[in-house]
Design a protein around this nucleic acid. Structure first.
Length: 327
DNA sequence: AAGCTCATCAACCGCAGCCGT
DNA sequence: GACGGCTGCGGTTGATGAGCT
């Protein structure tokens, strides 16, 4: 029931991040929830460090804060994410990336943890399925409205499998440029701060950010000539969002690669700029990479929007012999 | 029916920023 | 400016239960 963290940490050679001797971990009991709720209701939020002692809880302050924010807070909305919320999450993620707290601040009753979990499980899996399901010729788009909550066994490879795969994995496509020495993506804190500040004065930043992003998408759409390429609407989702956690192999098929290396690679080649750059636009082929980029052996051909509405499709080519656009 | 696999969610951890001294 | 404590955030892990074979 009680875990001796201190002893465990000593064995593992790492000191605990804070004083945890004798503190309880794991799932919260009803009794603990009641104690925490009553205390916060009486004394207010904050002072998390001293809260456990004052409230008589054998928990660390961080754990109390997390429990309150993610579960006990009165204004939380329980239950499944609605279609509207789903679409909002996609939009906000497009604008902010993995700024879960920022995204959550625009979804009343939802927590950053909840949204993060939802994104990491449901949405990214659906996107992965879309890309990998290449045998279904009729499938041309992702329909956000169809991203249901029903449990399905197919889809994204589980963490444990991915771990096994990645553990001893050598990056197969050795032509990928800029294999970073660090696996961590660059910090985006300055943007975060700016977003926080702007959101604080009327939540206009998110709207503007989305507008700006959509405006950019519309430019791309116009250039792609709707009649020829079937462009329609402006509900595009960033390529980065599709690829941030998965990658393509040399056949244009999604495979498991190191997430951070893919992110680093995408950041380096600046996919979005390539797509808005005239030199990479070809009347026949749509957007393309230059010669050096083609040597990467895979890339994006362009966007295409289905006739069904707010969907998107990313065309791919392989090697130096791009396939023709279809549809 | 049993064992296995995997999705989901709650919770933990480390880090960075903020703020007071 | 340096330092230390507190807080919040994002990444990650682990428990649990549902679905599949």
């Amino acid at each position: 029931m009680y875990t001796n963290i201190f002893a465990t940490s000593v064995i593992m050679g790492k000191a605990p991040c804070c004083e945890k001797v004798g503190l309880k971990r794991g799932r919260w009991t009803k009794e603990e929830d009641e104690i925490l709720t009553k205390y916060v209701q009486a004394s207010g939020e904050g002072s998390w460090k001293s809260l456990p002692k004052n409230a008589g809880l054998l928990r660390c302050g961080k754990s109390c804060r997390l429990r309150w924010i993610n579960y006990l807070r009165g204004d939380l909305k329980r239950g499944n994410i609605s279609v509207e919320e789903d679409e909002m999450i996609v939009k906000l993620h497009k604008a902010f990336g993995n700024r879960w707290s920022l995204i959550a601040s625009h979804l009343p009753g939802r927590t950053d943890n909840e949204i993060k979990n939802y994104w990491n499980s449901s949405l990214s899996r659906q996107i992965y399925r879309f890309f990998t399901n290449k045998n279904e010729e009729t499938q041309t788009s992702i329909n956000i409205a169809n991203l249901s909550n029903k449990k399905q066994r197919v889809g994204r490879v589980s963490r444990c499998v991915a771990k096994k795969y990645n553990k001893d994995r050598v990056f197969m496509n050795n032509k990928l440029p800029f294999l970073s020495t660090t696996n961590k993506p660059a910090s985006q804190k300055p943007v975060d701060k700016q977003a926080d500040e702007n959101v604080g004065v009327g939540s206009s930043f998110v709207t503007e950010n989305i507008k700006e992003s959509e405006a950019c998408d519309n430019v791309v759409s116009d250039e792609m000539k709707p009649d020829l390429f079937g462009f329609q609407g402006n509900e595009l989702i960033d390529v980065d969002n599709f690829l941030e956690s998965e990658a393509l192999d040399t056949n244009g098929v999604l495979s498991i690669h190191d997430e951070y290396q893919i992110e680093q690679w995408l950041a380096d080649i600046d996919v979005e700029n390539l797509m808005n750059n005239e030199r990479n636009f070809d009347e026949t082929m749509g957007f393309r990479f230059d010669e050096n980029e083609l040597n990467m052996e895979f890339g994006f051909k362009g966007y295409n929007i289905s006739d069904e509405g707010n969907d998107m499709l990313v065309w791919l080519w392989e090697g130096s012999n791009p396939t023709q656009l279809e549809g």
